[in-house]
Amino acid sequence: MDFAAADWVESKGDELHRVDVREDWEYDGIGHLPEAVNVPFDSYRADAHAADGGEGEAGMLPGAERFAEVMGAAGISRDDGLVAYDDTHGVFAARLLVTCELYGHDPDHLHLLDGDYSSWVRDYPTSQETVDPDPATYEARFDPDGPLVQADVVEAALDDPDAVVVDTREGWEYDEAHLPGAVRLDWQELVDGDTRGLRPTSELRDLLEERGIDPEGRVVLYCNTARRISHTYVALRQLGYADLAFYEGSLTEWEEEGRPLESNERAE
């Protein structure tokens, strides 16, 4: 799983499925990458299907059956290569890729556009032609031995000197309440405002070193509902972090279970 440069994506042509995770009105009305299919963000989140009575394996996961339907309808099988994008620096698209991995998709086949739609249109063609893909079979199977961890594992990591728990939310959210001892790393700090993609590798490594996020150690990520950690997860994978844990329940579940929190006092 990695960030893919726009020129590489363009060179691959139809070897890669292009997946636009924006809302359908954006896909249809604003335009999209040529041959991209539309898989809106809400279609692979559990809360969008509450009326169906289905529940995912954890947090906001949609459940293997529902995810298989969504991806199959988009013409994608689990063996296919795909690149996902949005128009928000990749944070929504990253969530799709992490969900794919959790349901058994080979991470080596998963790519996040380095940038977003607004960066793509500066140099590459777009289309407003709706793509109607041929249905495929997507065999989604949740991998319990994957990167997703439960709250007890996170709590143990807070006391582990060889692990760091990382809060990827904004500063004001962290100040209001965060897991005790968690390090703050707003996911947006990894984004270059000009390119709309990842900051240069040297800058990222300096930032992570400053925060004590060691590539040789264990890193546990959380936010509120596991959307923002998806972008950070892909970024750290890109940088070679091998021991990454993904707390799907995040702060929402942590609070519901009455686990300890701490806050920072603000100066008046």
Score class of each variant (00 low, 15 high):
residue 159 D to A: 15
residue 123 D to I: 00
residue 64 A to D: 10
residue 68 A to P: 12
residue 181 G to V: 08
residue 124 Y to D: 05
residue 99 T to D: 01
residue 156 A to I: 02
residue 109 H to I: 07
residue 178 H to V: 04
residue 56 G to M: 12
residue 83 V to F: 01
residue 92 F to R: 02
residue 180 P to H: 11
residue 149 V to Y: 09
residue 133 P to K: 04
residue 64 A to H: 05
residue 157 A to T: 00
residue 130 T to E: 12
residue 175 D to A: 02
residue 137 T to D: 15
residue 74 A to G: 15
residue 85 Y to P: 05
residue 84 A to K: 02
residue 140 A to F: 06
residue 95 R to V: 03
residue 108 D to V: 06
residue 56 G to C: 10
residue 122 R to Y: 08
residue 178 H to G: 04
residue 141 R to M: 09
residue 124 Y to A: 05
residue 106 D to M: 00
residue 135 P to S: 10
residue 171 G to Q: 13
residue 117 Y to W: 14
residue 137 T to E: 15
residue 67 F to M: 02
residue 95 R to T: 09
residue 86 D to T: 04
residue 113 L to E: 11
residue 181 G to L: 07
residue 101 E to T: 12
residue 174 Y to C: 10
residue 153 V to P: 02
residue 144 P to W: 00
residue 106 D to F: 02
residue 112 L to V: 03
residue 153 V to W: 13
residue 180 P to Y: 08
residue 157 A to N: 01
residue 58 A to K: 10
residue 70 V to N: 11
residue 117 Y to R: 12
residue 117 Y to S: 07
residue 120 W to A: 07
residue 56 G to H: 09
residue 108 D to I: 01
residue 147 P to D: 13
residue 121 V to K: 14
residue 97 L to V: 12
residue 131 V to P: 13
residue 123 D to L: 06
residue 167 D to C: 05
residue 129 E to H: 03
residue 152 D to A: 10
residue 101 E to W: 13
residue 102 L to K: 07
residue 107 P to T: 08
residue 146 G to S: 13
residue 100 C to Q: 13
residue 70 V to Q: 11
residue 171 G to W: 05
residue 145 D to F: 05
residue 110 L to E: 08
residue 178 H to T: 04
residue 178 H to A: 06
residue 79 D to Y: 02
residue 114 D to A: 11
residue 123 D to F: 01
residue 71 M to N: 10
residue 91 V to Y: 07
residue 110 L to F: 01
residue 78 R to S: 14
residue 127 S to Y: 03
residue 122 R to W: 12
residue 76 I to S: 00
residue 165 V to E: 11
residue 163 A to G: 09
residue 106 D to V: 01
residue 162 D to I: 05
residue 111 H to Q: 12
residue 115 G to S: 06
residue 154 V to C: 09
residue 148 L to A: 15
residue 111 H to L: 14
residue 72 G to R: 06
residue 100 C to W: 07
residue 86 D to W: 02
residue 137 T to P: 03
residue 110 L to S: 09
residue 77 S to D: 13
residue 163 A to K: 10
residue 66 R to I: 06
residue 82 L to D: 08
residue 145 D to R: 05
residue 107 P to S: 08
residue 69 E to Y: 00
residue 167 D to Y: 00
residue 129 E to S: 08
residue 119 S to I: 01
residue 70 V to C: 11
residue 129 E to I: 03
residue 167 D to L: 01
residue 180 P to R: 07
residue 157 A to Y: 00
residue 56 G to K: 07
residue 140 A to I: 08
residue 125 P to G: 04
residue 74 A to Y: 15
residue 132 D to C: 03
residue 142 F to W: 15
residue 117 Y to C: 04
residue 149 V to I: 14
residue 126 T to K: 03
residue 124 Y to S: 06
residue 123 D to E: 11
residue 174 Y to Q: 09
residue 141 R to W: 02
residue 159 D to K: 15
residue 119 S to F: 01
residue 182 A to G: 12
residue 170 E to Y: 03
residue 123 D to P: 00
residue 112 L to W: 04
residue 106 D to W: 01
residue 121 V to E: 15
residue 158 L to I: 08
residue 126 T to L: 02
residue 102 L to Y: 08
residue 82 L to I: 10
residue 80 D to Y: 10
residue 115 G to N: 06
residue 90 G to S: 04
residue 72 G to S: 05
residue 145 D to K: 05
residue 132 D to E: 15
residue 126 T to D: 05
residue 106 D to H: 02
residue 69 E to R: 03
residue 98 V to P: 04
residue 147 P to M: 13
residue 142 F to I: 09
